[in-house]
């Protein structure tokens, strides 16, 4: 049993399957085997949901059992979870109602709430205390005028300036970030292959 719990086992599984997929990608050989491995991903994804649900239920049951702080909210979470789950399985129209008339407005409200606070930030935080803040402010104003169709029609000169900001300044910065991300992915993959990166199996 202790052999199965060794950290080297999942690392070996990772290395073997990664090499198989890489081999197929670069040579075109072992196509069926690589496809089979990739087709396991949805199953593993679903299993991760089940693990998540079990963990969530366990967490809230413990809170309710020990009557910890705000335990009443845990009851609400569990009741909502059970009702939504059962509706999804047993009565689709009611599930659609929950989605369209409860979940959707709540999610959109949460985002709108952030929107309101953004507007107070415009007033409180966007003050030009130095030259860099001035650049940021001017750029923000130009982009916002451009993004509002009415103003970009009334002041057409904001359009070419905005496109220049987007295509030159912003794209340049994003490209650098993307290259950084790409290099990071390669580096993490190599570290994982050699067993230095172990956080995904609970190591350090």
């Amino acid at each position: 049993m202790s052999f199965i719990r060794r950290i080297e086992i999942p690392i070996m599984i990772f290395v073997i399957f990664s090499l198989l997929i890489l081999f197929n990608y670069f040579t075109g050989m072992a196509y069926e085997a690589a496809s089979t491995v990739i087709s396991w991903a949805p199953i593993l994804w679903i299993l991760s949901y089940i693990v998540g649900y079990v963990s969530m239920i366990r967490y809230h049951v413990i809170i309710i059992h020990k009557k910890q702080k705000d335990w009443i909210y845990s009851i609400i979470v569990l009741v909502c979870f059970i009702i939504t789950f059962l509706l999804g399985q047993l009565y689709k129209p009611a599930f659609d109602f929950v989605f369209m008339h409860i979940l959707l407005p709540l999610q959109v409200s949460m985002l709108s709430y952030v929107g309101f606070y953004t507007y107070t930030v415009f007033f409180r935080g966007a003050r030009t205390r130095n030259i860099y803040a001035l650049f940021l402010l001017v750029t923000a104003i130009i982009i916002m005028l451009w993004q509002a169709p009415a103003t970009s029609a009334i002041i057409p000169s904001v359009v070419p300036i905005s496109i220049w900001i987007r295509d030159v300044l912003q794209t340049g910065a994003i490209r650098a970030i993307l290259i950084g991300i790409g290099l990071g992915i390669i580096l993490i993959f190599i570290r994982t292959m050699f067993g230095y990166e172990r956080s995904y199996v609970g190591g350090e």
Partner: peptide
């Protein structure tokens, strides 16, 4: 459009 103009006015 009106929201963006308002944001610029606030700035």
């Amino acid at each position: 459009s009106t929201a963006h103009i308002y944001a610029v006015a606030l700035l």
